[in-house]
């Protein structure tokens, strides 16, 4: 397997008023193609900051962030936006669907950033919704769907443009156990059948069991690795 993501000596500090808070002071991480990594750790350990850096929604102060052999830490805002659209699928804890759009339109959103024809877009949306088992709800607005169904639509939105990399921020944090297991099963399937590389931040050890390995982050340092 080759490395899809590599963080080398990444440093990140936040300023809160006059106080300076160091989150990472030389963090290193390698995630292979096709990996499914769960990241766990207590609040304030740096999980969300790591997720933001991996997804290109935040910038490191120094160090290298490589994606598929390309350094992305030097990209400007526009380049990062384009890279995110091409390469990363995002799944949030609270789904973050657009309430004014139906399921199919929500899934189509990332395709608005591509040059695909209307017909090809429709086909991709159908495929993505069928993968998550919600094609029959394509015309439903988010408020007409259950939490689990909304998260499935969010997964369909994340995979519709066929990115290599999925970033999940507590994807089951707002769901009951059974629904959570369904969603995690879907993620596992995407990893195993479609070869998607997944990084998932979670507080839930049960959820982490669906990943191939779990990294425990504590005070900005990987403390433990569970296979």
């Amino acid at each position: 397997m080759s490395a899809l993501i590599q963080l080398k000596n990444v440093k990140k500090t936040y300023r809160r008023g006059k106080e300076s808070i160091t989150i990472f002071d030389g963090l290193n991480l390698t995630i292979e193609q096709g990996d499914f990594v769960a990241i766990m750790g207590p609040s304030g350990s740096g999980k969300t900051t790591l997720l933001n850096l991996l997804g290109g929604t935040d910038r490191s102060d120094s160090g290298e962030i490589n994606f598929d052999g390309e350094r992305i830490d030097g990209y400007n805002e526009g380049q990062l936006a384009g890279w995110r659209a091409r390469s990363v699928g995002f799944i949030f804890q609270f789904y973050n669907l657009m309430p004014v759009l139906n399921a199919a339109q929500n899934v189509e959103l990332p395709l608005m950033l591509t040059k695909l024809s209307a017909g090809k877009r429709r086909a991709n949306v159908e495929t993505a919704l069928k993968i998550v088992g919600l094609w029959d709800r394509a015309k439903h607005k988010p408020k007409e769907l259950s939490g689990g169904q909304q998260q499935r639509v969010a997964i369909a939105r994340a995979i519709v443009s066929d990115p290599k990399f999925l970033l999940c921020d507590e994807p089951t944090g707002d769901l009951d156990r059974n629904t959570a297991n369904d969603i995690l099963g879907t993620l596992q399937q995407l990893n195993q059948d479609l070869g998607k590389t997944i990084v998932m931040v979670t507080h839930d050890p049960e959820a982490a069991r669906f990943a191939k390995r779990t990294l425990h982050l504590d005070k900005g340092v990987f403390a433990e690795v569970t296979q």
């Binding site: 526009g78 995110r84 990332p110 950033l113």
Partner: peptide, 14 residues
Amino acid sequence: TKEIGVMKTLGFSS
């Protein structure tokens, strides 16, 4: 605000 954040996350430029 959050929806705008989500759109930007998905890759919509500012």
